[in-house]
Nucleic acid binder design. Structure first.
Lengths: 255, 255
DNA sequence: TTCACTGTTCCGTCTTGCGGAACAAATTAA
DNA sequence: TTAATTTGTTCCGCAAGACGGAACAGTGAA
């Protein structure tokens, strides 16, 4: 098919990933459905699934194959293997309890943002995001704060790779507009997202730096517009966030 | 090597899993180290790693390859795909806050127990376990409660598969002793783990049933021996646990 | 019962994953 | 600085083995 520069990849792995993706799309599917979804023969799908089953990456239920809890193990391991994250988690909890709203920590990877920690306070809104979810960095306050902590060159590479798609009407989709917003964020030290991710949801975010002066990710608080305004989205909340970010950075440095 | 009954498996997948495992063992390794750890040539390791990288399952850092946060995504997805788990999480939190101790929920899979939810209360001990960790079911109170909710036949299969290794001096390692203990648990409705998982750590667990009368997993509270005794490990705590388990089951039924 | 659908096993073909070697790039030694 | 050693990457030829298709075996519905 595309016969020249895939010599450096392994096609069996790619079909394996396609199968994992198919299982992720719809839980409880049979061999035949997987085969047709991925575009391989039944026997191929069957062999891949048997291998996955042997290594306990999937389980068989009455309704078919599903991804197994082994992925929870790998996910937990990955989160634990970044030593700095251990200092972030309690602070996210503290932030959620202090504000009563939704507190989150997003880490950048492959140019996107991944929700690493999420804690809901008393009155926090229930959004659909869950730990591990990948979002565009320019869609959230924590993500924009993270971008602002990177060099323009790095940000450019990210934009080239993923573009600047809109999520709501308020999302920044213009390259120059984003860069000037990032400069503003660099000046004042925090980012604001007003309806840019979900309409009605506002959030404040600020970056958390690692010891090597590279950005670890962004921490944020999110809530409905009126409550965020009342809580001081331009002054009190940013100060609280920056204080917490500093504490995290200190803990990382002197751990 | 073992040349007859591996026709139903895919060896590329197996080396892929071996590579993932090698990456899990030690963070930040290079192509050569991976190759020698897994026992394949450099070129093979390189191609697998390139494929993993393309699909964002790994990241490259200065120190080498590491597993990426994509596994956090899959882990979160898996936990979310079991609809009943959504009813379990808040109750684990409630349990941790009420008791101030460590509350956990373990689900069985492939004959082992996986920590699905973990919440630490105010005075909770800090153990090494993390979400996703796999443990022998007979090592914990929640696990034994889960076993007790299964048929003897199923339990037998699990013992045949994994054995009954000891974790501490107090671990039940005898098959008959375990079965009679399971009968006791079935009678009184809860399981106790006294030093069987970690010396000094006691816990109470009870099963949580799904609507189809199969066991969903076990919920437990753990703490240091003296505090657990004071809190009524034989009466007050089991009652609390059973109440919470019933609430979960009701929520699942009428969701 | 038959039918239509599953999941599983077998087999022959030829794709393609494999190791080894050559190369390039980076790090260390001298 | 150069030399030496180790790293990551690319190329190539071969045969291991992944592939699709067909035959088989369960399972449930009509």
């Amino acid at each position: 098919m595309n016969g020249d520069r895939d010599r450096e990849l392994i096609q069996s792995d790619e079909t394996l990933f396609a199968i994992i993706d198919a299982l992720k799309q719809s839980d409880g599917v049979g061999v035949s459905q997987v085969a047709s979804a991925v575009g391989v023969s039944k026997s191929t799908a069957h062999r891949h699934l048997s291998t996955l089953l042997k290594h306990q990456y999937v389980v068989r239920t009455a309704s078919g194959y599903r991804l197994g809890l082994r992925f929870l193990d790998l996910g937990g391991h990955v989160r634990e293997q970044y030593p700095s994250f251990a200092d972030v988690e309690p602070k996210v909890t503290e932030l959620a309890e202090t504000t009563g709203e939704l507190a989150q920590f997003i880490a950048p990877e492959h140019g996107k943002g991944i929700f690493v920690f999420r804690r809901t306070g008393e009155k926090a809104v229930r959004t659909e995001a869950r730990v591990g979810k990948r979002v565009f960095l320019h869609h959230t306050a924590a993500g924009k704060a993270t971008l602002a902590a990177m060099s323009d060159e790095t940000v450019s590479e990210i934009i080239d790779r993923w573009g600047l798609p809109a999520k709501t009407d308020a999302t920044t989709t213009d390259r120059d507009a984003l860069f000037s917003e990032l400069n503003l964020i660099r000046d004042r030290g925090f980012a604001i997202d007003a309806d840019e991710h979900l309409t009605g949801l506002w959030s404040v975010g600020c970056p958390v730096m690692a010891t090597d002066d590279r950005v670890l990710g962004g921490i944020s608080v999110a809530g409905p517009r009126h409550r965020m305004k009342d809580a001081g989205i331009e002054s009190a909340l940013p100060e609280l966030l920056q204080a917490i970010a500093s504490e995290i950075e200190l803990n990382i440095t002197y751990r």
